[in-house]
Nucleic acid binder design. Structure first.
Lengths: 193, 193
DNA sequence: CAAAAGCGTTGATATTTATCAACGCTTTTT
DNA sequence: AAAAAGCGTTGATAAATATCAACGCTTTTG
C-alpha cells in the first residue's frame, strides 16, 4: 500500500530514505478508501488531513450562491489532495473535496506532516518541491486564464494534461477552465475542423 | 539597509536569528537600485535572482502575440520579486519584471538562497511559509477568476488589497484582473451608484 | 428490466466583455 | 514653455460567452 508513496518521496528527494525514516512515514500515513462521491472535505470544515492518492480520481470545488460548482483542482494518482489554505491557516474551508472515482488514499494529519518535515529531511525536501510546483502550476494557469481566450485555454490544457481529458467528463473540464459546458462543447466542435 | 529583510525573516520564523546567521544573510543579499521602468528580468532569460523589495513597486507580466501586456503579479515593499518557475526549473522566463516606481531591492542569487535555506533554519522556515502563502494567494485568485464576474473580482480585489489600488494605475489593475481598462472604468462607474 | 440520472450537444437569445476611436486632463520630457 | 506621453473616460459596435430549453444517448440505480 505505501510503496507508491515511498517511491514518490524518493523521486522528489536527493538522498535515499533510511528504514527508520520509512517506518516513520508508514506509521503517519493511514490507508483510507472513498467511494464515488464521498467527501474528503466539506465546506466550512477545517482541513485536517492531507491525502496522497494511490488509486482513483478526485476533485476540489467551490459552490457559489447559485449552487454552481467551480472546479479549482482535479487530482489523480500521485497527487496530493487537501485544501492548503485551510490546513495552513486553520480556517474553515471554502471548498469541497470529493472522490470522482472510487479512490484509495494514504492520509496523514497536518500535524503529522509537520512532524515528518522536521524529522525526515527527504520528506521536507519533497514537500518543499511540492509547494513550489503547486505554485508554478497555479501561476501558469492564472496567466493562461487572464491572457487567453477560452479556446486557447482549452488547447493548452488538453496539450499539457491529456490524462485529465481522458479521465474527467467534459463538464468538469469546462468548469475547471472557467467556462460553461455548452461553450466547451462548441469550442471542441470548432476545433475538429 | 538590511533591517527590513531581517525583520521580515524574524517575523516569519519561530526562533530568533543568531548574529552569525544574520551575517550570512547580510552577505548573501546585495543592495540594488532600479530606476522606473528598469528591468529586473526580461523574457527569455533564466531568472537568476530573487529580490526583496525594501522600497518601491514592481510588476511581473507576460506579453502576448499582439503585444498586449498581462500583469501576473504586482509587488510592493516586503514582497519577493522573481519568476519562481524559471528560477526553480532553470528555464527561460515567459515574463518580464520591471520597476513601476524607483525601487530599492536586496537581491540574492538562487544558489545563495538554497545555501541559506540549508544553513539558516529560520530562513528555511520563512521560505517555506512564503511558498505556501504564494500558493494560497494564487489559488484564491484563480478561484475568484473562474467563479466570479469582472465586477465581483474587482470588488474582492479592492477589499483585500487597498494598497495596490492606491499604488498602481487603473489600467494595470485591470490587466491584473484579466479585463480591459475600459471595462474596469465602466465597472467603477456603475459601482459608485 | 424499467426508471432515473448523467452527459454531451444544439438552437435561440441575452449578457458580458472586447475593440476601436476619440477626447480632455495631468504629468513627464525636451 | 511646448510637445509628448500617460491616464481615465465615453460612445458605438463587435465578439465572446452565458443562459435557458430541449433532445438523444449511455450509464447507473432501484
Amino acid at each position: 500500500m505505501h510503496e507508491n508513496l515511498l517511491a514518490y518521496i524518493k523521486q522528489h528527494a536527493t538522498s535515499p530514505l533510511t528504514s527508520d525514516e520509512e517506518a516513520l512515514i508508514v506509521t503517519a500515513f493511514q490507508p483510507k478508501k472513498l467511494r464515488k462521491k464521498q467527501y474528503f472535505l466539506e465546506e466550512g470544515n477545517v482541513c485536517k488531513y492531507v491525502g496522497f492518492i494511490v488509486k482513483g480520481a478526485m476533485r476540489q470545488y467551490s459552490v457559489d450562491d447559485k449552487g454552481v460548482e467551480h472546479i479549482v483542482q482535479l487530482y489523480i494518482e500521485n497527487y496530493w489532495a487537501s485544501d492548503r489554505e485551510s490546513a495552513v491557516m486553520l480556517t474553515p474551508s471554502k471548498y469541497y473535496i470529493d472522490a470522482w472515482e472510487a479512490t484509495e488514499l494514504l492520509i496523514a494529519t497536518v500535524a503529522d506532516m509537520l512532524d515528518l518535515i522536521e524529522r525526515v529531511p527527504s520528506f521536507g525536501q519533497m514537500t518543499r518541491l511540492m509547494d513550489q510546483r503547486s505554485f508554478i502550476v497555479s501561476q501558469r494557469r492564472l496567466n493562461s486564464t487572464i491572457s487567453n481566450t477560452a479556446e486557447k485555454r482549452y488547447e493548452e490544457f488538453a496539450d499539457n494534461h491529456p490524462q485529465f481529458i481522458q479521465r474527467f467528463p467534459q463538464h468538469l473540464i469546462a468548469s475547471f477552465l472557467g467556462i460553461t459546458k455548452e461553450t466547451l462543447s462548441r469550442i471542441r466542435k470548432q476545433a475538429i475542423k
